[in-house]
């Protein structure tokens, strides 16, 4: 009886869901994290809305067409896209409990994410250096907020990635560790989805206007 009190919803016991029973903890955790990701996407959509409203408010300063370098953005996009792929491979490696596949794919994901971040920081530094920092115009404020927020998410994701590599290395493929790996992989894929919206709305539409 004491176990029922400690875990009223029997989350730790639901191994199978047969005919409306209690789903397994992996499903509950994944669903909860999915809802967090959706709320994160809603937060991003608010930044997107403010960017779209302010994208013409350049206050006499440079516009996106003059500032954006599509080659740089293309390389960044390739990095994130490939890192999403290697992240999927890492998920398969974790389910197969193959150390080589998991750790190598995670390392590749880290390298690609780090290259993305380095390119973005270089772009930001270049913009600030030519006097187009976030204080120049409302357009640039919205731009730095939106793209920088995604960059912060990638930074957090990279740290999470290293933590997952270390935890799998130290503790092995325990169910709780596998759930964390699943949440990380969902997070990383969601970042890529946000980047798709970002390069289309901010960079490509900005340049083609």
């Amino acid at each position: 009886m004491s176990a029922t009190h400690a875990d009223p919803h029997r989350l730790g016991h639901g191994a199978r869901s047969l005919g409306g029973g209690i789903p397994s903890k992996r499903i509950v955790v994944g669903y909860g994290f999915w809802i967090f990701l959706l709320s994160d996407i809603i937060m991003f959509s608010a930044f997107f809305a403010s960017y779209a409203v302010l994208s013409n408010a350049t206050a006499g300063g440079p516009s996106g067409k003059q500032l954006f370098d599509l080659t740089n953005v293309g390389i960044e996009t390739m990095c994130l896209l490939l890192s999403s792929f290697t992240c999927g491979l890492a998920g398969i490696g974790a389910r197969k409990e193959s150390n080589l596949m998991f750790q190598a794919s995670m390392a590749a994901t880290f390298v690609l994410g780090a290259v993305f971040l380095a390119l973005e920081i270089r772009e930001f530094a270049g913009l600030v250096a030519q006097g187009a920092g976030p204080a120049r115009s409302a357009f640039l404020t919205a731009f730095f907020t939106l793209v920088g927020c995604h960059g912060l998410h990638v930074t957090a994701g990279l740290m999470w990635l290293l933590t997952m590599m270390a935890q799998v290395f130290a503790k092995g493929y325990r169910p709780d560790i596998l759930r964390r790996v699943m949440c990380f992989s969902l997070f990383w894929h969601a970042l890529d989805i946000i980047w798709v919206a970002l390069f289309s709305v901010v960079y490509l539409i900005g340049v083609s206007q």
């Binding site: 191994a15 199978r16 992996r26 499903i27 994944g30 669903y31 999915w34 992989s185 969902l186």
Partner: peptide, 25 residues
């Protein structure tokens, strides 16, 4: 009892329902 964490009738986001591998990605 968490050994059967996979293979339930509901699916967590990010989990392939049927065993889909590298091909899907």
């Amino acid at each position: 009892d968490e050994t059967s964490d996979f293979g339930t009738s509901d699916v967590a986001p990010g989990d392939e329902g049927a065993e889909a591998g590298v091909g899907t990605y």
